[in-house]
Design a protein around this nucleic acid. Structure first.
Lengths: 183, 183
DNA sequence: GATCTCATGTAATCAGTTACATGATTTC
DNA sequence: GAAATCATGTAACTGATTACATGAGATC
């Protein structure tokens, strides 16, 4: 895919302007697919040309006009078709992992700092996911069909952050242990 | 960064030809940073221009000549400098997550198949990491400085795969449970 | 008066993928 | 005879990032 299907999903959930989408890609859906507003506007134009979305200019008072995009029938068909195609294997690409591997050739103190920073970023996102879950899915054992996708993605994010924290802890344990021994 | 530092790390561990590097980026280091041979050759040329690596043509019998690249002093300095700079925040980009969120708008049966495929890919990589760990680090409690980076990265891969499997299991539990209820 | 939010874009550049290209040797 | 391995590249294209651009109204 690319960003197109992420936009289709977001618009299927609720119509939005490019600006609204940019904010969504900064928060919720953006936790697993980032996109800048420039990219979003460009792709929306292309998608409208393909007939996947349709726009309507909405006037507002005290604010600039906005172009609200809605998914079309053709867009829904494309989205359904896309879900029916197998997802190509995705491999992680982690600069952090490369840096950990570079430990014997680098600056251990700086790397330890980096691990701390990463750990706290994981903690922040974990807290965000937990709050999000509590707010949007107070009864996870009674989800309806429309909610299940969002809930499961949140769960995935949660598990990933927890694993990330566990990894940071292992790294710090190793690195600070060897430090203590050296002295 | 980009791929440059991954190549520097790999060459710091051991000098190699572009072809060798391409194979490494297909296996070990490639589990957290993928690169094609075309890309590697292109970047190696640029890096040689920058003085980070130096090449030497080695003749072989019964095989084509190869250009063996070694990291230079300037390359080691750049590598050390890079480790001392903070790693920019990296956000996951997961087509799979987008697809899970698309559940209410897509083909649940196809998505379930996809989850199964992903789960088995996770299992394969987990097995690979476990074998790798047993082979290269039989005594994880007695690692020397040169080994610590590789070991910790393996641990990260392991934890990530385990989390991935746990996520797939949760998804499958949800989706096959609701399927059973529907009938 | 300065900064933030709302709102939408264009242009240039860079990183990465896909397609194309070649050629010898070894294995099935 | 066909396919796989070893070995190195160029060219075209696509996807994504960064820089640049504008302008009104709201808040501090």
């Amino acid at each position: 895919m690319a960003i197109e299907h992420a936009i289709l999903v977001s618009l299927a959930e609720r119509s939005a302007s490019g600006y609204d989408l940019a904010r969504r890609f900064d928060a919720s859906i953006g936790h697993f697919w980032k996109a800048s507003h420039q990219q979003i506007y460009k792709v929306l134009g292309r998608m409208e040309g393909d007939g996947w979305v349709a726009s309507e200019v909405v006037a507002q008072d005290g604010r600039p006009d906005k172009k609200v995009y809605a998914i079309t029938l053709a867009g829904r068909e494309e989205l359904a078709l896309w879900t029916s195609r197998p997802t190509p294997a995705e491999h992680l690409r982690s600069e952090f992992a490369v840096k950990i591997r570079a430990l014997p050739f680098g600056d251990p103190a700086a790397i330890v700092q980096d691990v701390h920073a990463r750990r706290s970023a994981h903690l922040d996102r974990l807290a965000y996911y937990e709050q999000s879950a509590a707010k949007h899915y107070p009864r996870p054992d009674q989800l309806d069909d429309a909610e299940i996708g969002g809930w499961l993605v949140l769960r995935g994010g949660l598990l990933a952050e927890q694993a990330g924290i566990a990894w940071c802890d292992e790294i710090l344990q190793r690195l600070t242990a060897s430090e203590a021994t050296e002295r």
